[in-house]
Amino acid sequence: MITIEICIGSACYVKGSNQAVTILQTLLKDKQWEDKVEIKGSFCMQSCQGGHGLGIKINGRQMLGVGLHNIQEVVEEEVLALLS
């Protein structure tokens, strides 16, 4: 099972983490990955404080530079690599 953690702290929430969850839920449904990938909320990853975008980890690996503009592409690429 691949785990995606998304920061739901106040700063990331303001930057759209709630929208990111919706985007990823749609992606998982469209790709039929619901039984292979789970999405979890997480508290502060300090990603936004460092200017690295939304706080998101995939299987514990911090993803940098992720925002609403590219979250779908970044996650899709990473999940595909992990599934292969």
Rank of each mutant, 00 (worst) to 15 (best):
Q49V: 01
G51Y: 09
K29I: 04
G16E: 13
S42T: 11
Q62D: 13
I58S: 02
S47H: 04
Y13D: 10
E78G: 01
K36C: 08
K40C: 02
G60T: 06
I39R: 01
Q72P: 03
K36R: 11
Q32C: 06
G60K: 06
W33M: 10
R61L: 14
I58N: 02
G65L: 03
C7M: 13
E73H: 12
L83S: 06
Y13I: 04
L27T: 04
C7S: 09
G16T: 13
E38N: 09
Q19T: 11
A11H: 08
G50Y: 02
G55E: 00
K40E: 15
L64N: 13
E76K: 14
K29V: 11
M1C: 03
E76W: 01
V21N: 00
I8M: 15
G67H: 12
V37Y: 09
C44E: 04
V74S: 10
T26L: 09
E78L: 03
L68T: 14
E78D: 07
S10R: 11
G51R: 02
V79H: 02
H52R: 11
L80V: 03
I4V: 15
Q19V: 14
Q62M: 13
I39P: 05
N18S: 06
Q46G: 04
L24W: 10
Q62S: 10
C48E: 06
I58W: 00
E77L: 04
S42D: 03
V75Q: 05
G16N: 08
G53D: 07
V66W: 03
L80E: 15
Y13A: 11
V74D: 07
Q19H: 15
I4A: 05
Q19R: 13
Q72S: 12
V74W: 01
K40M: 12
Q46P: 00
N59W: 12
L64E: 13
E73K: 12
E5P: 00
L64P: 02
G41P: 00
N18E: 13
S42I: 00
S42R: 04
G65C: 00
M45W: 01
E38G: 02
E5I: 10
C7K: 07
E34I: 01
S17V: 05
Q46M: 12
E73W: 06
T3G: 06
S84R: 10
N59H: 03
K57V: 06
C7W: 06
K15R: 15
Q46A: 14
L27F: 08
I4G: 09
I2R: 14
L68M: 15
L24K: 07
Q32G: 03
V66N: 10
V37Q: 01
Q49K: 15
C48H: 04
E34L: 08
R61N: 07
C7T: 06
T22L: 15
L28E: 04
G55F: 10
D30I: 03
T26M: 08
S84N: 10
E76P: 02
M63V: 07
L83I: 02
G16W: 04
E77I: 02
G65P: 10
A11E: 10
D35Q: 14
R61F: 15
C7L: 07
K15E: 09
K36Q: 13
H69S: 13
K29S: 11
V37C: 05
E77D: 15
F43R: 07
A20W: 01
L64F: 15
I4H: 12
L83P: 12
T26R: 12
H69L: 05
T26I: 11
K36L: 12
K31G: 04
I23H: 11
S84G: 10
T3K: 15
G65N: 02
